[in-house]
Design a protein around this nucleic acid. Sequence first.
DNA 1: CAAATATACGCACGATCGTCTATATTGTTC
DNA 2: GAACAATATAGACGATCGTGCGTATATTTG
Lengths: 209, 209
Amino acid sequence: MRSRAAVLERSVQMASRDGLEGLTIGALATELEVHKSSVFALFGSKEELQLATLAAARAILIDHVIAPALTSREGLPRLSAIGESWCDYFLSDVFAGGCFLCAASMEMDGRPGPVRDAVAAVMREWIGVLSSNIEAAMAAGDLRGDVLPAAMAFRLNALGMAANWQRQLLHDRAGIEHARLAWRAELDRHSATSPPRTRTAREVAKLGP
Amino acid sequence: MRSRAAVLERSVQMASRDGLEGLTIGALATELEVHKSSVFALFGSKEELQLATLAAARAILIDHVIAPALTSREGLPRLSAIGESWCDYFLSDVFAGGCFLCAASMEMDGRPGPVRDAVAAVMREWIGVLSSNIEAAMAAGDLRGDVLPAAMAFRLNALGMAANWQRQLLHDRAGIEHARLAWRAELDRHSATSPPRTRTAREVAKLGP
DNA sequence: CAAATATACGCACGATCGTCTATATTGTTC
DNA sequence: GAACAATATAGACGATCGTGCGTATATTTG
């Protein structure tokens, strides 16, 4: 074993399949062909192992989704790039069991404790990246002024999480392409260069004959 | 203990918090103030308990989300009603740990076996309900003919799953209202009585000056 | 009433869990 | 070369896991 980094490389994969709670020191040691107490000693407790694994997964997400988009200008271009790289990342199978953070945030959402708090913090950070780019796009005049950043970030995030879900549970990668198209459509729809929103069917109905 | 039904009432709650795998016969027995072997004997194996718990959760979902919408006409009205009742159901805290099936499908998506297959079957069923109502709405002329049912079902489902995620992990019920509004907007946007789709910003840009 | 079935209990099994202690092997630094 | 921190090992602990077996009660069925 080359210390923590090598262990975390495996633990991230194992946890993406079995969950952060399903991650086990014994099984991790067996897979690394190392004694259980060696792995334990490196982290001191299971909770520390979970936190370190989460941090490693966050780094991978940043590396694969955020970093490639940093070459694009902040605001709408970067928002568009994040959508593309997020979908690419789903297809790339960086994690054996699908997006680590999607799984972890669903798994831990009911159990109090430091691990859950750390997962929530990472996800707030992620939503924050989306929101701040939406706000930047509005400030730059690329997105219309009536956009609600939190609501739009919610919709964009929903697309990716559902894409990962459909790919992993149903073994259907069509969801990723649905997400890609819907992400683009969402940005287009609220683009400042797009015509103003047409009256909705609901509003038309209210107008009467 | 009043037999299986009483056990399942609790196991569904426990599994919604701790996951289907985190569900434990011993802890379940303790909470029911009953001996471990009593619970075990009722189901014969943990796997059977998991499958029975899943079936119970499916029944609850049908009861709270599908059934209320059955009073609306199949197609667009029912699709709209499902969205409302789904959001109501998120707010109602029927499950202590949030939507059982959202959590279970993220948790089990990496582990092969009968339980995972059963979860996938329930979710396929759910997506099928959305799709078939979309198709019915198209056939009735309520939704436009260029709608892709699978893609639209994906987008609608994504909204609900993200709403549950935001509520449970971030303790923020704003996501539910975002989902409610986005669900309505999605239906309006593709309604046949709505004006045809305006050119997108992307397409406008391509036209040049 | 007798037979049968469902529900419950108590106890014990092997396995695995997280954790701990004591010790050996490194590689680095003074 | 000595001192030291990091990394590894072996072995054991109490707890809990899923799973069995034998048995007692309670309800239903014949």
